[in-house]
Simulated scan of single mutants.
Amino acid sequence: MGEIRLGPIEWGVVTAHHPWGLGVRLEESGDEGVMVLTSIHDDPRHCDSEYWPDVGARIRVRRYIYGAPDDEVRLTSRESAMEGLVNGYDPPREYPPPEGAGPAQEGTVVAHRDWGVEVRLDSGQIGQLRARLMESGPDPAPEERWPGIGERVRVRPWASGPTAACD
């Protein structure tokens, strides 16, 4: 096998859960890709489908580009890969905001949904704060720990969409 390189960060939508990983459609190109178990997250506990993003969820991914051409589009959503670390996780490093993230902003939680919370930014825009983005570890944040309606939060909106991430 040739050298492994990573493509640019892209947005994809989870299309399927398989025993071996995820099916993902890339938003811009429409290409269908695969994400094997070990490419879903840096934490190996995420090999358990309980921790996977839902079908229909929008996720950030990168293509694995091999030295030899291959018809199969291989993807990763590992945070270490988002930072360009091809072969592993660098725990002591603090990662900067991902590509496409805007400056941190203040907002107010306006609704709870089954997927997370809606936040009205001070600019008036409404964004989605997904449950998986409120996680501080491998266990999802139970709804009782989500910020309450009316509570002020600090988020970092994605420039390419309405989904926000905790800052």
Rank of each mutant, 00 (worst) to 15 (best):
G161P: 15
V117Y: 09
R60I: 11
I65A: 08
A164W: 14
V86D: 12
S29R: 02
H18W: 00
Y95E: 12
A57Y: 10
P91L: 00
G84W: 07
E106V: 03
D48I: 07
V34R: 01
N87Q: 13
E50Q: 10
R60E: 14
M35Y: 05
T38W: 14
E106Q: 10
L6F: 03
P140E: 11
L6P: 09
D71G: 15
H46Y: 15
E10D: 08
L129K: 11
Y95Q: 05
R145Q: 14
P142Y: 02
R45W: 06
L75N: 03
L85K: 03
L129G: 05
W11I: 01
G23S: 05
R156E: 15
D43F: 05
V73M: 02
G148C: 13
E144Y: 01
Q105G: 05
G127M: 06
V36D: 08
I126W: 14
G7H: 02
A165G: 12
P98E: 13
V61M: 00
P53R: 02
D31A: 06
S77R: 14
E144P: 02
T108P: 10
R93Y: 02
W11K: 04
E135W: 01
Y64S: 02
V119P: 01
P98N: 05
H112Y: 06
A57S: 11
I40G: 10
I40A: 08
M82W: 01
L85A: 07
V14F: 03
L121A: 05
A159K: 06
P53K: 00
D122P: 14
I40M: 09
V117M: 05
G2T: 09
I4M: 08
R120D: 15
A16T: 05
P19Y: 04
M82Y: 06
T108Y: 04
G67V: 08
A164K: 00
P103E: 15
R120P: 09
I149P: 11
I9H: 00
L75C: 08
P103S: 14
I4Y: 07
D54I: 12
E27S: 00
P157K: 02
A111H: 11
I59C: 03
D54M: 13
E99H: 08
W11A: 02
V86F: 09
R132I: 07
P138Y: 13
Q125Y: 13
P138V: 13
E99D: 03
G107A: 05
P98C: 07
A131R: 07
S49M: 14
V86Q: 01
W52E: 15
E118I: 08
V117E: 12
S123P: 10
W115G: 13
G2L: 07
E144V: 10
W146V: 14
M82V: 07
W115E: 15
P138K: 10
M134E: 06
G2N: 10
G30W: 07
S80H: 09
